[in-house]
Design a protein around this nucleic acid. Structure first.
Length: 601
DNA sequence: GAGTTTGAAACT
DNA sequence: CAGTTTCAAACTC
């Protein structure tokens, strides 16, 4: 890490900086701040860097890329996690996420077998940096293996594939986010490539090996996988689902950010390891050749993760622009005019972002926030609508009845809350009036339920003890269980880890798989319903995306409401909303093995 | 694909 | 803080 860091800094940082660092004042500040300034600053020029300053909560979307929600399409992806992870969390989270991501690709592989990412570099550095530098090492090897396994798995299990696909889909966003970050990162060739133009093709032109270097492997990897899968299964899975799914832009954002990190991390490794590329790239290469085509395919597949804006007057420098709001650069597929949201205009983008944040520090925060309690619930079922998830500000719908994507709550896959000023709310995910009922009573009631559920989960957990179950601690578990993790991890790792939720996740997934778990009433009709299985829906998110960034953003990602799952009104209602901006306390204490990454960290 | 509707974002 | 305008996504045809 350090090696790379120094290189970067000199270039970007003013000469004076070093002096400052040495100054007593600087040292003092350093001692006070948990975050190490130097590294973090540098990580990349991405938005994130900027965002950090503002609020921990917001790791800016771009950075971690965490801009989960926006990717509206990805919402599914991101599972709502509980609390917004503080910036510091991200660091640890990043590592974890990586693992999980890998796992996603290689669902079957037992975590234990895989070497864990070396914790070394991590701790202090920013999430961004950490990710970048670290991942390369352990990740690659692992990734390759995973890939191979993955392919095999694909053949074996269709369902699994679907899920994977969904994940991959979300990957689009990641990739973009990744790109975005990359832009900031001097090291990445990608940036330059993009800088010239958003044209993705850049990568395509280069040879496969070169491509690797140029493009972040993960992003490509995801794309390729998606493409590959699509051919086989994707059609089945996503095509329909996506459209219907409410994309939570906000959630997407959050998820995105997380994803981005993942991508970034993974990407780095790829670049370093050309060899892997070949393996992964089969699909990729194809994609690169026809970026547009790929894009289209992905969209069709429901991958929708990729956001495309169509801005004409905002120059993509206002929140009107979904890309900008999500913390990602506009890319070729965008139909925007006079776009300034490109790496070449990074300074402007950052400045604008800064201004917006100055006006509204939460502007780039995930729009959908999770209730602290929700994690356990949601975490289990990625598919299900997070009971406690709610839109940060609430909507103001007058005519849509909160039943269309005009409504941010609906779009985010969450119910309306007392914060909403909507009229005639009919939000399928939860009406405002329902939330109004929120009371301690309900909460208690709910808790009772949860308690029961936990008991069940625990039991099941015990019963199923397998490697995968071990999963409780590790994301590696079954494919399904894995999927949700990445999102959750993003922002709230700490709290997340503490919960049993992680363990429950795996278990629950299994149960669901067997049809054992479902207790919740079915949702009337959610977008995803028709098509699919929960997972898919989640994946499809129109995105989860999260448009953004704050730690929350990660959380933001809400799974699109699932047909099968509808949180009981009581459930949702009962929860208190926690402003994500406030970082949850990292509860490192219990971390069990819950998650590989964290535990190791 | 063009036009309309809608509600968030931005502005006053 | 409220009202108005601008904007682009979502939606409809």
């Amino acid at each position: 890490m350090e090696d790379s860091t120094p290189k970067k800094k000199p270039a970007k940082l003013p000469p004076n900086l070093s002096k400052f660092e040495d100054s007593p004042v600087f040292n003092f500040i350093n001692s006070l701040s948990p975050i190490k300034p130097v590294k973090s600053i540098h990580i990349t020029q991405t938005f994130n860097s900027i965002s950090f300053p503002s609020l921990p909560v917001f790791t800016s979307p771009p950075q971690h890329h965490f801009s989960p929600l926006k990717s509206p399409k990805r919402p599914n992806f991101s599972n709502p996690s509980r609390s917004p992870p503080p910036v510091s969390k991200n660091e640890g989270g990043a590592v974890i996420i990586m693992d999980q991501l890998l796992e996603i690709f290689v669902p079957e592989i037992p975590t234990a077998s895989t070497p864990v990412i070396p914790p070394q570099e991590t701790v202090d550095s920013d999430a961004g940096e950490v990710v970048v530098f670290r991942c390369p090492i352990s990740t690659e090897a692992r990734e390759q293996e995973d890939e191979a396994l993955f392919q095999n798995d694909c053949v074996l299990d269709t369902i699994e594939e679907n899920k994977l696909l969904s994940n991959l889909q979300s990957g689009n966003m990641r990739r973009r986010c990744l790109d975005f970050e990359m832009a900031g990162n001097p090291n990445s060739a990608t940036v330059e490539a993009r800088a010239g133009d958003a044209s993705i093709p850049v990568s395509s032109s280069s040879s496969s090996s070169s491509l690797r270097r140029t493009l972040p492997g993960i992003g490509l990897h995801l794309n390729s996988l998606a493409a590959t899968l699509k051919n086989s299964d994707s059609d089945n899975l996503c095509s329909d689902s996506q459209p219907s799914l409410p994309s939570s832009s906000a959630s997407i954002f959050a998820s995105n950010s997380t994803r981005d990190q993942l991508l970034l991390a993974s990407s780095t490794p790829d670049s370093e390891n050309p060899p892997q590329e070949s393996a992964n790239l089969t699909g990729e290469e194809l994609n690169q050749i026809n970026p547009k085509k790929n894009w289209k395919l992905m969209e069709n597949a429901g991958i929708g993760a990729c956001k495309r804006c169509n801005c004409k007057k905002s120059r993509c420098l206002k929140l009107y622009c979904e890309c900008f709001a999500a913390g990602v650069y506009c890319i070729e597929p965008c139909s925007c005019q006079d776009c300034f949201n490109k790496p070449i205009h990074e300074a402007m983008v950052l400045e604008t972002r800064r201004q917006i944040e100055s006006r509204n520090p939460l502007a780039f925060a995930p729009k959908v926030i999770m209730n602290s309690d929700s994690v356990s619930e949601l975490g289990d079922d990625s598919n299900k609508t997070p009971a406690s998830a709610r839109h940060k500000r609430g909507c103001n719908c007058k005519k849509s009845g909160c039943l269309k994507k005009y409504c941010e709550c609906y779009q985010g896959g969450v119910g309306c809350s007392i914060n909403c000023r909507c009229e005639g709310c009919k939000n399928a995910f939860g009406r405002k009036d329902e939330s109004a009922l929120i009371g301690t009573e309900i909460e208690q009631e709910e808790e009772g339920r949860e308690h029961c559920q936990k008991t069940i989960d625990i039991q099941s957990d015990e019963d199923q003890q397998n490697p995968s179950n071990a999963a409780p601690s590790t994301p590696l578990g079954p494919n399904r269980s894995l999927i949700p993790f990445p999102f959750q991890l993003k922002r709230r790792l700490p709290s997340f880890l503490n919960d049993e939720s992680s363990s429950r996740l795996s278990v629950r997934f299994k149960l669901e798989k067997h049809g054992i778990t479902q207790t919740e009433p079915k949702f009337e009709k959610t977008p995803c319903e028709d098509v699919t299985p929960e997972t898919l829906c989640n994946g499809c998110p129109s995105i989860t995306d999260v448009k953004s960034v704050s730690p929350n953003s990660k959380r933001v990602t809400l799974p699109p409401p699932q047909a099968d799952f509808r949180p009981l009104p009581s459930t949702r209602i009962g929860r208190k909303l926690i402003l994500q901006s406030i970082p949850s306390f990292p509860s490192l204490t219990n971390q069990n093995s819950g998650i590989n990454g964290p535990s190791e960290l």
